[in-house]
Design a protein around this nucleic acid. Structure first.
Lengths: 275, 275
DNA sequence: TTACGTTACGGTCTCCGTAAAAATT
DNA sequence: AATTTTTACGGAGACCGTAACGTAA
């Protein structure tokens, strides 16, 4: 099974229409039709049910679609990683959400510079829940992830520590002056609480909306250090602790990466013991 | 990057020689040389250092080799799985070492027959530490694995229970008559203890060697039920408990598989609570 | 009749194999 | 001189696009 064929298959599977799929692939329908037929012949089972309004996936097609998506992702990731590994000055790409640095990133970077097998670290910022995808796509080598149930498929990870949460509200919000607050109170107050569900906001949009009093949201304590001036943070006494993870592609432990992970884990352990 | 190209690359990387790689691929050297050059051009970095005695992998080549092996494995697995999913009578293939049934397999199979979404279960036996490979290759859907540190890359898993161990010795071994024994005694006695390191024995070879008094080995308690007549089992009071895992390819939870896992987990939990 | 997928056909592009050449020990 | 990789060249096969054809709502 060639990746060109997988690309064709995924296009048809996602468009559920040979014509649209061909357009998306930039080819004519007939070659696409032939290619799919060839695949089905080779696999030995039909992957689509042809109807006069388009196509439907068979059970086998559903199974293949899952694998095919992963394969395509992995194949582009493979060349991306090889390319970076072969560049003159190898670097480590750390993926993180802006501001979500766990309050220890600066120290980790400082320490890592002097570690054995260290290489320069590039920071690649990303949006909500994009970490795993970027690692799997070969864009990044390692990611710093906050969250309860992150998507770790195909990744190895290590928990660095857990962190309490603060509520971020507009400066003139009724809760802004409180020294502390409970989860019940968070849910009881009227301003909507941003949960990350639904549409992903553009970069920097959420702080803006919070400052305008349209939303409030929870954040890890360490994020409180670099909030906008026009918002306030209130400790939430009984908020669940957020795990802070370091994650990297499965079995991709270059020396540079292993050394970075070790440095971060050591510093995290040290900080835990200080508390 | 096409999988044909990856196949070529892996062949050269593993043979470290264009000529041998070409022979293994069943093609002539020149097309192979061209193909590799094309790949290197596309990736943008050299993957091999050509010497007059063959080739060496560059750092980028090493990185790509890891990914390429996984990709090839995954691509064959994808069609294998799709083919099985599309067969007229879908089945669930359970991979396990002969005898390593956790003492509960019969009950799980019996129970599963009546579970919702159940399909017929095929048993596929395998050798020492072959489970993961067979799952990744798409040969099996789910595996029953004993062991402390199994290879779970690319797999999801669930621990069913933990089991104590017995020492399996020849019937006329000095320890055969003991009601119980400690790990210290196991290590102190003279017959070599088989640890699974080194060469993998042929199927059924180890029991033979144990019966002949050439080796002794540890086994989970449940394996004691189907030992040869000419060996004896002695409980080891302080042996570390062996985890018994159910594992399956990451994110491949068909209804049939999910139902099987649930059945097994439920029965395991029930047995734990009975103790 | 319209919208989709499939066959038929001809051209092009890629890939392969044989043969000769370059490079390194 | 021998071994190994690379370049040159000619042919076979794969893939694509246009056009014509089935087929179901």
């Amino acid at each position: 099974m060639e990746v060109r064929e997988l690309t064709y298959f995924v296009a048809v599977a996602e468009e559920r229409h040979f014509g649209r799929a061909a357009a998306r692939l930039g080819i004519a329908q007939p070659p696409l039709s032939r290619a799919i037929k060839a695949i089905e012949h080779r696999v030995g089972v039909p992957l689509f049910e042809r109807t006069s309004r388009g196509v439907l996936l068979t059970a086998a097609g559903e199974v293949l679609l899952e694998d095919a998506r992963r394969l395509l992702e992995a194949s582009t990731a493979a060349v991306a990683r090889a390319r970076r590994a072969g560049s003159d000055q190898p670097r480590l790409v750390l993926v993180l959400k802006p501001g979500a640095d766990g309050g220890m990133l600066a120290e980790v970077l400082r320490e890592y510079e002097h570690a054995p097998d260290a290489v320069p670290v590039d920071l690649h910022t990303c949006g909500f829940r994009e970490h795993a995808g970027l690692l799997r796509a070969g864009v990044g080598d390692v990611a710093l992830i906050y969250g309860k149930d992150p998507d770790l498929a195909g990744l190895d990870s290590e928990e660095l520590f857990r962190e309490g949460q603060i509520l971020v509200v507009a400066q003139d919000h009724p809760l802004a002056a409180r020294p502390s607050i409970t989860m019940d109170e968070v849910h009881a107050q009227p301003t909507p609480l941003w949960t990350g569900d639904g549409s992903v906001p553009r970069q920097g949009e959420l702080p803006q909306l919070v400052a305008l009093g349209r939303w409030i949201h929870l954040a890890p304590i360490s994020a409180g250090h670099h909030l906008r001036r026009d918002v306030a943070a209130v400790p939430v006494s009984d908020a669940p602790e957020l795990p802070v993870l370091l994650a990297w592609p499965e079995q991709h432990r270059s020396k540079a990466l292993a050394s970075f992970v070790r440095t971060a884990v050591d510093i995290a352990a040290e900080r835990r013991s200080l508390r």
